[in-house]
Simulated scan of single mutants.
Amino acid sequence: MMIELELIARLVIAGILGALVGFEREKRYKEAGLRTHFLVAVGSALAMIVSKYAFFDVVNSGTIELDPSRIAAGVISGVGFLGAGTILIQRQSVHGLTTAAGLWSTAGIGLAIGAGMYIVSIFGTLLVLIALEILSRLFQPVFPKFHKLTIHVRTNEAISAALTILSENHLDVKSYQVKVTSVDNHPLFVVDLQLKSKKLKKKETEILKMLQTIPELESIKFD
């Protein structure tokens, strides 16, 4: 009975540690949030517990030897497919890689808890949270973030005017794509731009006001 209580405690601890990672992803509105990370951690811990303890009645016969690491390896591979489902490719940008890596790390945390490695699991969780929450802020001044700007305009001249405004405000356009659609039998140009600047957030309101002066502009969206 005491052994079963300890195994249940392992599942609970794994769920809590996984939920901590998921909470960070949830508040950033990522594809996989609190529940997903909780389930990955608990499921991984359960798989490891089954791998280590579920076959004692067979192994005790002395005729069979089992390798508990095989299920752990299978869990890591399986979570790789789950992580791939969180990765989105939109035009020239890729989203969800960090969340996929977080899921993979959460599976490792769950496996470690299932194996009874409490201290290692807790420190692993702390390192994952540091990577997700602190490193991006710490190195943000060094590595400028790419921002996405989407504008809808009526003419090619409006595209040139928008690019001129961005250039005059020292915003580097890494890439942009133009898609032509039709609204009420009139052409509408949808322009997706990737901008690189350390100070874009400070100048966002000012840039929006300048872009709004373009007569042919229909809408603006900053991501």
Rank of each mutant, 00 (worst) to 15 (best):
A131I: 10
M210H: 08
E157H: 14
A84Q: 10
F222A: 01
I214F: 01
I134P: 03
K145S: 04
R35W: 05
A84E: 10
F123S: 08
K198L: 13
G83S: 08
I71M: 11
I8K: 02
L171P: 00
V50K: 00
K199W: 01
K202M: 06
I220Y: 02
G102L: 00
I109Y: 07
A107H: 12
F23C: 11
L11G: 12
L195S: 06
I159A: 05
L135I: 15
Y118K: 09
L193P: 04
G62V: 14
T150G: 01
D192M: 00
R137S: 09
I113V: 15
V142A: 11
E157Q: 15
P141Y: 10
M2N: 09
N169H: 13
A161Y: 02
V40Q: 11
G62S: 06
K201Q: 13
K174R: 14
G114Q: 07
T63W: 01
G22T: 07
A14L: 10
P144C: 06
N156F: 06
L46F: 13
D67S: 11
T181E: 14
V42M: 15
A72Y: 02
F23H: 10
I134M: 12
L88R: 04
S160F: 03
K145F: 00
F56D: 14
G110V: 11
T155Q: 11
I113S: 08
I122E: 07
S77K: 03
F123I: 15
G15N: 11
K30V: 00
K145D: 00
V191T: 07
S175I: 07
L188Q: 15
G124S: 13
L217N: 07
V190Y: 03
G74T: 01
I109D: 03
T150E: 14
H152A: 10
D172K: 06
Y176G: 04
V183W: 02
G108T: 05
F56C: 05
I89E: 10
H37V: 04
V183R: 11
T36P: 09
G62K: 04
L163T: 02
F143H: 03
P141H: 11
G110A: 13
T205S: 12
R25D: 02
V75Q: 09
I113H: 10
V58M: 15
K179Y: 06
K203H: 14
R154S: 13
L111R: 10
